[in-house]
């Protein structure tokens, strides 16, 4: 999580207008879901990888790390799609061409879709999503809550980490039973601190005139129509190419 966040804040495309990243990425996601996966998927994967690594300058291993967890789930799940089970006359496992095809399609489609999101998470910090969420009609209080949670996650992650280290220093995790005990203590402590922190944050915000709205400035970034148009044309090109290839091969 730390690594994702780090690259989201420091990549080369960090200061670009969020629409230049969000629109193409979501269009690409839509293509992935609508068009034949076997031709679209690889093209989308290629484009998102290139955009993240070459474009935004995020190291490829970070991109793979984000992809790794969903990919692992897919690899575990796909065989079950390929195989069909029937109980007529005992337990029968069938491996049908249709099943294999389905498994392949699903895997490729899911991987491509995840890659669109990986591109976004690695290039666009959560703050930049807020204006989009507001424009889509999300209630202001929900957006504020999301942003506040984002901020507090790090405060708590740090507390949890130092707390764990302090416990480990006194051999709190030396044995299995002690580990359980220590984890329980740590969790209880974090809940308590959470409430305490909320109370103090309330005081801090009130000192700055908080009356129920967490309004802040949105960064002023010019939208480059040229870049957006180029990106959308690339996305369109992928759609076209995938359609042509599909007609040729499938």
């Amino acid at each position: 999580m730390r690594a994702i966040d780090h690259y989201a804040w420091t990549n080369r495309w960090r200061d670009r207008h969020p629409a230049e990243k969000l629109l193409p990425a979501f269009s690409l996601l839509l293509l992935t879901l609508l068009l034949p996966p076997l031709t679209t998927g690889p093209l989308v994967l290629l484009l998102t990888t290139l955009a993240t690594v070459r474009g935004a300058g995020v190291p490829i291993h970070a991109f793979w790390n984000v992809m790794a967890v969903p990919a692992a789930f897919l690899l575990v799940g796909a065989p079950f799609l390929a195989v069909s089970i029937s109980f007529t006359g005992g337990l029968n496992l069938h491996l049908s061409p249709d099943g294999v095809w389905l498994a392949l399609e699903t895997t490729v489609r899911a991987l491509a879709a995840v890659s669109c999101l990986a591109f976004l998470t690695l290039t666009t910090p959560l703050v930049d999503w807020a204006p989009l969420l507001r424009r889509l009609g999300t209630p202001a209080s929900v957006v504020e809550l999301i942003l506040l949670m984002y901020r507090l996650i790090f405060v708590f992650a740090e507390r949890a980490l130092t707390g764990r280290q302090a416990q480990a220093a006194r051999l709190g995790y030396a044995r299995f039973d002690r580990s359980l005990h220590s984890t329980g203590l740590l969790a209880g402590n974090l809940f308590q601190r959470g409430l305490d922190r909320a109370r103090r944050l309330d005081i801090g915000l009130a000192a700055r005139g908080y009356t129920g709205d967490l309004r802040v400035l949105t960064p002023d970034r010019p939208l480059s129509w040229l870049r957006l148009a180029t990106a959308m044309m690339l996305v369109g090109g992928i759609g076209l190419m995938s359609g042509l290839l599909a007609r040729e091969w499938l």
């Binding site: 959560l126 942003l147 103090r200 944050l201």
Partner: peptide, 12 residues
């Protein structure tokens, strides 16, 4: 940390 709540310095 009792006072900073926003994601970026400017916003806060």
């Amino acid at each position: 940390d009792d006072q900073l709540f926003a994601a970026t310095v400017e916003q806060d």
